Amino acid sequence: MTSKGIQIERLSKRYGEGDTAVLALKDVNMHVAPGEVVGLIGPSGSGKSTLLKCLGAVIDPTSGRMVLSDEVVFDNGWRVSDLRALRRDKIGFVFQAPYLIPFLDVTDNVALLPMLAGVPNDEARERAGELLAALDVQHRAKAMPAQLSGGEQQRVAIARGLVNRPPVILADEPTAPLDSVRAMAVIRILNAMARRFQTAVVVVTHDEKIIPTFKRIYHIRDGITHEEEGEGRSLQ
């Protein structure tokens, strides 16, 4: 079956009940095609984090429908029995901070997830090495996280997010701690990896440096999304 990337239909999230209830998401609709990188922007408290947590199967939506890759994962209730396996197999996460394990070298930081998923150690390390080469940090394969620059750490974090070959990547402010050159390098990498692996990528950001690079943007305010064409400026 052909991957559908990400499809969200009328997704809502309510916190609380009765008079104290807060509707954080209100009938959100979104589509991200395989190989596409879209931006998700909005003010603090607009619902960005809630939407990302629903997409990442970290919190339960209240209603609506979510399709990740070729699978309906939520339809007014979860349609998968193991949410940890869903996160492991279908979703890659890239955060503002790299969150690398300080006592593992770069290769083992990347290879750990497939190892935990049952991939043989040699194969997991081979996958890690391929991604580190693609991200131009293979020369740091045996380095410890503390020996890396900020940009190198973020590239290793991207490799870790991609190593299980998930159809979906959720990136939460991945360029916030970086200067302009490194921020644009991260966005180039995410776009290249999206095309190469046909991954659907959502980037939550406040970073005005990278917003002009998106071809499509979802604005979210008061729990409601509005899609618009982005500038799609060249990343060269």
Rank of each mutant, 00 (worst) to 15 (best):
S3F: 07
G5K: 10
I6F: 11
Q7M: 13
Q7V: 15
R10E: 15
K13L: 10
G18A: 01
G18P: 02
A21T: 09
V22K: 10
L25C: 09
K26W: 04
N29D: 14
M30C: 13
M30P: 10
V32C: 07
V32D: 11
A33N: 06
P34F: 08
E36A: 05
V38H: 11
G39L: 04
I41K: 02
G42T: 00
P43C: 03
G45Y: 04
G45Q: 07
G47Y: 03
L51M: 08
C54L: 11
G56L: 02
V58L: 14
I59G: 13
P61A: 10
T62I: 05
S63A: 12
S63K: 08
G64A: 05
M66V: 04
V67E: 13
L68Q: 08
S69A: 15
D70V: 02
V73W: 09
V73K: 08
V73D: 12
F74V: 00
R79H: 04
V80S: 08
S81D: 15
S81Q: 14
D82N: 14
L86P: 06
R88W: 07
R88V: 01
D89Y: 10
K90L: 13
G92E: 12
F93L: 09
F93R: 00
F95W: 02
A97C: 06
A97Y: 14
Y99K: 04
L100E: 02
P102A: 02
L104C: 00
V106L: 06
V106H: 00
D108S: 09
N109Q: 12
N109T: 07
N109L: 14
V110A: 07
V110H: 02
A111C: 04
L112P: 07
L113I: 08
P114A: 08
P114R: 06
M115Q: 14
L116M: 13
L116W: 02
G118M: 07
V119Y: 04
V119E: 10
P120I: 10
D122A: 15
A124I: 00
R127E: 06
L131Y: 06
D136R: 13
V137Q: 05
H139R: 06
R140S: 05
A141R: 15
A146Y: 15
G150D: 08
G150K: 01
G151D: 08
E152S: 07
E152W: 03
E152Y: 03
Q153I: 02
V156A: 05
V156H: 05
A157H: 06
R160P: 00
V163P: 00
V163R: 00
V163S: 05
N164E: 05
P166F: 10
P166A: 14
V168D: 11
I169M: 15
A171N: 07
A171C: 12
D172H: 06
E173W: 01
D179G: 05
D179H: 03
R182T: 13
A185F: 01
A185W: 02
V186S: 05
R188F: 08
I189Q: 12
F197N: 14
F197S: 11
Q198H: 14
Q198D: 12
A200Y: 04
E208T: 14
K209C: 11
T213R: 01
F214R: 00
K215G: 15
R216F: 00
Y218Q: 03
D222E: 14
T225G: 05
T225R: 03
H226Y: 08
E228K: 12
G230Q: 01
E231A: 15
S234C: 13
L235K: 07
Q236T: 13
